[in-house]
Every structure is written in structure tokens, then in C-alpha cells.
Computed example of a mutant assay.
Amino acid sequence: MTTTPIDDTTDSHLKEQLTSREELFKGKFLEARRDTIRLPDGHSATREYVVHPGAVVVIPMLDDGRVVLERQFRYPVGHVMVEFPAGKLDAGEDPFVCGQRELLEETGYTAREWAHAGAMHLAVAYSTEIIHIYFARGLTLGERKLDHGEFLDVFTATPDALSGWCRDGTVTDAKTLTCTLWLQNVLSGAWALDWQAAPSQGGAG
């Protein structure tokens, strides 16, 4: 065990090296691979994982202190989930542009100011997915532009109510749990954000 600061320049004793790759599945959205790798001790092993294009999640903050949330059925787990608005990146898309687009399409809101909070890896053991986290405030409600085949309810809640749902298991979505941690620390003043005025969204939709 070590308590020294994290320094990834000294991680060679932990890193694995690719020796060969097999494509198991390639769909419209995801692909699956099986890599053969060399372990730090020289032995071989395999790693099976999903390649994901990445995504963005938005924490929309209303002027009265509430946040905007969604309820959406998620087929793989068979449940309606409480989530912050989110969506996958198109090929080559800037995460901020994706965040603006998804917020408008799913909720109808546009935002006057945005702040990039950070990023999270959703499932490091078996997926490449990275989710970029944005805050949005100064919200104006317009018309939703849901994708074909997309069905979801939009509602609002106080941060305290959201925190309670995270505690009692109502919220189990990993990105929403992480965003709630961010929200708590931003509201308490523990974590600062660099707010920026939003450019025009004339091409969104």
C-alpha cells in the first residue's frame, strides 16, 4: 500500500500490452472485442470489452433551485430509470455540442450558461465508455424534439429529494449518482465551476 501522490509515469508495473485483437460483434451502435494481452509479469490473458462512442450527461439547474430529470424505460435492465438528460456522441462530435443538443431534444430546455464539470468512465472492467459531465443554468423552456422511438417523461425535483432517492435506491443509474455527488459539492461551494455563456443554438435539433 502507498499513500504517495498519484503519478502515472511510474505505472509500468501495472500496464498491460496488446498482442492481438479479435472482433466479436459490430452493430450500429456498439462493438465487442476480445484482446489477447501481455501482463506485467509476462504471462498472457484475454480481455473482452465493449467499444462505446462516448456520451454526455447534463445537470440542468432551474432558477428556483430544482433540477431537471427524466424517467425512461431502459430495456437491458427492464426498469424505468430516473436519470439526468444524457445522450451518446455522434462521430467526431464535440461533447459540449452534444450536451446542448440532448438537453433541447429530450427536455425542450436551452441554457444561458454552461460549465464542464469533468468526466466519468461508466464500466472500466468491460467498456470504453466515457461520459462528459456538464452543468447548465439560466434555463428557458421550449419544445422538445425527441428522436423517433424515444419515449421519456421530464420532471423536476429539489436536490434534497434527488439525494434521498440516491440513498433509498430509487436512483441506481451510475451517471446520475455521480452527477448528484457533483451537484452536492457544487451547491455547498466545495467544488467550483467555470461557467461560460452559451453560444447560439441555431443549428441544434
Rank of each mutant, 00 (worst) to 15 (best):
P40L: 10
A45F: 06
I59W: 01
M81G: 01
L104K: 14
C98P: 00
V56E: 01
L141I: 11
G149C: 04
A55L: 04
C98Y: 00
V51E: 08
T140R: 15
P53E: 05
K145L: 04
E83M: 15
A119T: 07
T140F: 04
F73S: 05
L89I: 05
H116K: 13
T156L: 02
E105M: 14
R144L: 02
A161G: 00
Q72N: 07
L146S: 06
A157N: 02
T128V: 08
A115H: 03
A115C: 03
V154W: 01
D90A: 15
Y126E: 12
V124P: 13
A136P: 09
G54A: 10
D147S: 14
R112I: 00
F135R: 10
G138N: 10
V82A: 06
F96M: 14
G138S: 11
D90G: 12
T158P: 01
H43D: 14
A161R: 13
D64F: 03
G108P: 08
F135I: 07
G87C: 05
L122F: 06
G99L: 05
T158F: 00
I59E: 04
F155M: 10
E70L: 09
R71S: 14
P159Q: 07
L139N: 11
M61V: 10
L122Q: 08
G164T: 02
S163H: 10
D160K: 11
A119P: 00
E70R: 06
L122W: 07
S44R: 15
P159V: 05
S127I: 02
F155D: 04
G149M: 01
G99T: 04
M81C: 12
F135G: 10
A115K: 03
L69C: 02
G65S: 06
I59H: 02
I133W: 00
E143Y: 02
R101K: 14
R71V: 02
G87L: 02
F151P: 00
T156C: 09
M61I: 13
E113W: 02
K145Q: 13
P76D: 07
K88D: 15
T107G: 08
V50A: 12
V77H: 08
L146G: 05
A55Y: 01
A125L: 10
G99V: 06
S44P: 00
L141E: 15
I131A: 08
R74L: 13
F135M: 11
V58C: 06
F73E: 04
A55M: 07
K88V: 12
V67C: 10
G54S: 12
D63E: 13
T107D: 05
